[in-house]
Nucleic acid binder design. Sequence first.
DNA 1: GTCAATGCAAAGGTTTTGCATGATG
DNA 2: CATCATGCAAAACCTTTGCATTGAC
Lengths: 146, 146
Amino acid sequence: MLAQEMIDAMSKRGLRVTDQRRTLARLFAEAPGYLSAKDVYDEMGKTYGGLSFDTVYRNLRVLQEMDVLEQFVFEDGVKFKAHCREHGHHHHAICLHCEKTYAVPFCPLDIQVELPQGFSVVKHKFELFGYCEACGPQAEAGGAGR
Amino acid sequence: MLAQEMIDAMSKRGLRVTDQRRTLARLFAEAPGYLSAKDVYDEMGKTYGGLSFDTVYRNLRVLQEMDVLEQFVFEDGVKFKAHCREHGHHHHAICLHCEKTYAVPFCPLDIQVELPQGFSVVKHKFELFGYCEACGPQAEAGGAGR
DNA sequence: GTCAATGCAAAGGTTTTGCATGATG
DNA sequence: CATCATGCAAAACCTTTGCATTGAC
């Protein structure tokens, strides 16, 4: 998602386009992978001296509620990335090194999965973790495993 | 997993079997679903007056490191349950109402999933969320969704 | 000018750590 | 009786909330 698209989305929904939000949009548009609230705070802090944590949280939340950002609960905390442009239902392969995500069009539920007796599925998760072509398995040593 | 098995596992690994750990084992052996640290604290607090949070956390961590307990990161926090007895690789269907988990023997990776170019998989998740036969879809209203 | 966004301060919740006390093997 | 587990207190951490000020439209 381009920074401009995110900004337009905010504007269209009646949110005010501030300097900070422009920078936030650019940050996520350019980020290769996921960013935690702290990542965002640190990165934005370089530009904005008196930046405060609550503003970062507020903006992350607003943007997530607008579907501009996607939230993902990692074992070491919540992180965000720009909403992916992939159309239709799909899943993700996430690189443990660069945390970039790749679309996986296949969905396990499209085939006949044997469910527990009488279980009705509401939601499902299917995620692959590993190393992408660019990072390669050699990245494993210093990887972001866990 | 039976409470006695958990206790034996602790003993075997040189941990001391205290009253509290016995109760903890029983609690997880009897719990239908997942328990958060707070759930455990509240439940154990009924029996132990001066129970402290740090002890609960310490024991949960120790038991998890010993593979007696399984940890699961829900969107609303970390929860624990007794390690499941299912043999071999499998996945889980989790009831959003009672949080009980059911084994799903099928694994998506057993069939030919088209992966991103050059992606090497290290780990994967496949989880189903919904309502089990006992709870039924009617539980949805008061369910533990989110 | 009006209303939303920000910064500041403070609070709430969760999890961890250090140290004296008490219980287990 | 040596050591580990516990309770207590306090801290660290993450996230949220209320209020005055600043800035966008």
